[in-house]
Design a protein around this nucleic acid. Structure first.
Lengths: 262, 262
DNA sequence: CAACAAATGTGAGCACCGCTCTTGACTTGG
DNA sequence: CCAAGTCAAGAGCGGTGCTCACATTTGTTG
């Protein structure tokens, strides 16, 4: 159905009629349809946030929409399709939060930008645990996210992180400090080389691998907190714990401390 | 069922009858019942491994058991109860693997023991992705694991990790090396102090916090791999990537390199 | 404007799920 | 031997995803 719309839009581009007053030159039907789909996604997001992904029910969404259950299948192919829409929706919201948080820190404060990214991820995850779980938790069984639609929004955080690391390296402010920097084996070096060309990076192998570790570790820390892997009363000062982790991780990645703009 | 065994054993201790020939002095009924529960857990484990936690269906287990669906409710209170049994089962299998892997490395090779622990976790997770997802993925919605039954088996990995760190510290072989060791704030210091007394540790605050980071980071790396967060072809040499991560994480935690038994 | 065709909503229906309850059969201990 | 305890069976309730034939609305076009 969406592909039909796209075709119609292309036709409209070839059209010679003057643009309709306010909105796009889309037919009222198209606008109504888009609105309904948006409503379904909105309701789905609410159900997702309230009851979790596995409890997301098209029938419940239909009830909230004031329509019989089979009607929503006119707008959404099936439950998986709705999950995909919600996945993209959540990825983009997280990506927006992260981008905004990073942009709010001076460009040269690489450590600060990294910390801002990390905190933005954690804040969003704690605010939207069910949606975070949809993105980074166990995959919904029998559901495989369509790569062609989700890789774009799904890579925004790692793209932002890579941007910080590369900028820091180009500014000569990225350097590993640990007791040892493990050798990078041949296969891994190949992977990293591919990544380097794909993103146009200058960061060398060991630092790139360390960046990957900082990436997975960040989400590991957030997931433990959101998924309740820390016991009940084990860690009460979780903000401080996360701050400590972020500082160590920045160091692991070779970044200068936050606020050290030079 | 392990608790059944324990209870039965306690009763038996108070019993005055001479021990029955071969098996425990439990009635045939008890033995048959325990066997059925064990069968249910076994079948549940298979379903879990094949189709994931959300698709685990008591009706399907009943079919495999050759019994009508309502019959299994004689042995298992409800679906959650079965999930709890499978949770404990999986925690213990993972714990056994980790303990065995750690014990296979010389006691003084602290870095090697840490690497063995990490690899054991990863190997088990890759071998049993659905069961790993049950333990460390998004919590099953509406299901809250009963702490009194799961905390024991659920803390075996972190207990093993803490054991390695404390042994290394007591041997004078644990020291942070990064460019900076972030200050530990008051609240976090309180949490760490509680942990230190609870486990009888000697490790100081900063190193303990770093150990927690190594812990969450290890599971972050494993989860990314198991849950498919690495893109399709981004990382092909995942064994090598994980090895690099493990080496850096050992360094983060302050452990000596693997094989450095002195 | 009227007629037509596409888009949309409806309700019944299928197969599955978790879970409850009654009923009848069976086993076991006194 | 019989009463108590245990268990499987089956019907049933409300929920799910999804399909399909049918009715209705709606925008466009002759």
């Amino acid at each position: 159905m969406p592909e039909d719309r796209i075709e119609a839009g292309n036709e409209a581009d070839a059209d010679v009629l003057p643009a309709a007053a306010a909105s796009r030159r889309r037919t009222p039907r198209e606008r109504a349809r888009a609105q309904t789909v948006a409503d379904i996604v909105r309701l789905g997001r609410e159900h997702l946030a309230l009851h979790g992904a596995a409890a997301l029910s098209l029938r419940a969404v239909a009830r909230d929409l004031g329509v019989v259950s089979s009607a929503v299948y006119r707008y959404v192919e099936n439950r998986e399709e709705l999950l995909t829409l919600l996945l993209i929706d959540a990825y983009n919201e997280l990506g927006d939060d992260v981008d905004a948080a990073v942009a709010a820190v001076p460009e040269a404060d690489f450590g600060g930008r990294f910390a801002a990214l990390g905190r933005a991820v954690r804040d969003w995850a704690l605010r939207e645990p069910s949606r975070y779980a949809l993105l980074f938790g166990s995959p919904v069984p029998g559901y495989q996210a369509p790569a062609e639609r989700t890789t774009g929004p799904g890579t925004r955080v790692i793209t932002a992180l890579i941007g910080i690391l590369d900028a820091a390296f180009r500014a000569g402010r990225l350097a590993a400090t640990g007791r040892r920097s493990p050798a990078v084996a041949a296969g891994l070096a190949g992977d990293l080389a591919k990544i380097r060309t794909e993103f146009g990076l200058a960061v060398p192998d060991d630092l790139l691998a360390r960046g990957a570790l900082a990436w997975t570790s960040l989400f590991g820390a957030v997931s433990f907190e959101v998924f309740g892997q820390y016991g009940a009363g084990t860690f009460t000062a979780r903000e401080e714990l996360f701050g400590h982790h972020l500082a160590v991780l920045a160091d692991v990645a070779g970044l200068p401390p936050a606020g050290a703009s030079l």
